[in-house]
Simulated scan of single mutants.
Amino acid sequence: MSDFLGPVEPDGRIPPYQQTRVAAFLISAHGALARQFAFTLPARLDAAWQTELNAQFYREAEIVSLLLRATSWGLDLSLGYMVASWETAWAPAPIDGIADPHLNQAVHLATLAHAVHAGIRPAALLPLEANAQDPFVMALRRIEFESGRLLQAQILFLKGTDLAQHRDAVSAALEQRHAGVRKLWRELLESIGIGAPAA
């Protein structure tokens, strides 16, 4: 097991089979977030926190678009099963203790997004010898940068006054989401010969 992607090709590119699996996982996660943000957005924004949903929807869609174009795809017959298990994991899960369905869905989305953006650090997998000008390498760095920005919005919402009375329910949901995302990410990395990153 290695700590990084590779070994890189002579031109410094990440092997296509690793690009394919990492990109497929990231597209699944960020695509699920984009879809759920789109369905959660009301026709008219009635609360301040809803304005952030609109911005996050477009950022998640941009990440998916970037990966689709920057990845050197390879045939991977195992992806069908893997994608199905990932998509099931992203499905909305009701949060006990929050009766308002709109707020419940917003908390689900924020906890899932927090877990994805905080728990998946794709640029940390890049070896020093990776070609800095390769589109896939640049895409992973861009995604990690955007994730840091998006994470701030989720933190503000999850720690905001709107959720003060639901703090225990939110904390439990967040912990559960982080554990689920970490497990899937670790399994994905192990499938391409990378050891689990430190928790």
Rank of each mutant, 00 (worst) to 15 (best):
G12S: 06
A124K: 00
I95K: 02
L174E: 11
V22C: 00
T40M: 12
Y17K: 13
A110H: 14
A123M: 06
R186K: 11
N104V: 10
D168W: 07
R186W: 12
P127I: 10
L41W: 13
V137S: 02
E60R: 08
I155T: 05
T88E: 10
I95D: 02
I192P: 06
A89E: 13
A47C: 09
R141Y: 00
A172P: 10
G180V: 14
G180W: 15
N104W: 12
R35M: 14
V181H: 04
F4Y: 12
W185R: 03
G31Q: 04
N54H: 15
P15W: 06
A110D: 13
A91M: 08
L75I: 03
E146P: 09
I14S: 00
R13I: 03
G31L: 01
Q36H: 10
F39K: 14
A118M: 03
S28N: 04
S65K: 12
E87W: 09
L126P: 01
P101N: 09
A89Y: 11
A99C: 00
L33V: 02
F4C: 11
A169M: 06
N54W: 15
A32L: 10
L140S: 01
L66S: 01
Q56N: 15
S2C: 01
L5K: 01
L112E: 02
H178D: 08
P15V: 05
A55I: 13
G160W: 09
Q152A: 08
E60F: 08
F157M: 04
K159C: 12
T111Q: 05
R35W: 10
D162M: 13
G193K: 08
L75W: 00
N54P: 11
N54R: 15
Q165F: 10
I192L: 06
L68M: 15
Q176R: 13
A169Y: 02
E62A: 15
A123S: 07
L140E: 01
S85M: 04
G12T: 01
N104H: 12
A38M: 11
Q133P: 00
I192Y: 05
G180P: 13
F25D: 05
P15Q: 04
P16T: 05
S65R: 12
S72H: 06
V107D: 12
I120N: 07
Q56T: 14
P16A: 08
Q133Y: 02
T71I: 02
V22F: 00
G74I: 08
V137I: 01
D134M: 13
S72I: 00
A70F: 03
I95M: 05
D11C: 06
L174H: 03
I98Y: 05
E144W: 07
T40E: 11
A118D: 09
P122Q: 03
A43C: 12
S85D: 04
I63F: 04
A24I: 01
Q154Y: 08
I95C: 06
P15C: 06
A169K: 05
L26W: 10
H178I: 11
A153T: 04
L126T: 02
